[in-house]
Amino acid sequence: MQDCRQLVINLTGELVTITGRREARLALSAARTMTWRDAFAQLGQTEHEWFGLLAVSEDGRLSGLGQVLLLHNGRMLSWPHDLTGRAEAGSLYIIPPIPGG
């Protein structure tokens, strides 16, 4: 039996409107190492093209949006260093910048 663990991606703010969803899920295989960039690239194929832009972003700054914040199990992933690290199961919040209001 394959050992799959679940990554639950919570989209917030304007990303809900941009991607048309609040949540996305990705099964992570224990047999195959997948980086965060790989994970986003896969989500770009299966869920919404916006994830593909995130996968290739150098610093998390996306046109018209600014730098998104990635919060994995309560810990912030730093651009670009952590993005080449192994994607882990759990909860990932993707938070777009909110200038104020």
């Binding site: 304007e14 809900v16 941009i18 938070i95 909110i98």
Partner: peptide
């Protein structure tokens, strides 16, 4: 034509109560 504006029209400022809490803004 802007998705940002359309989103803001729907939610206004309440769209980011939770995300701003989690980001600690």
């Amino acid at each position: 034509a802007s998705p940002r504006v359309r989103h803001f029209t729907k939610y206004g400022t309440i769209d980011h109560v939770a995300s701003s809490c989690f980001s600690n803004d």
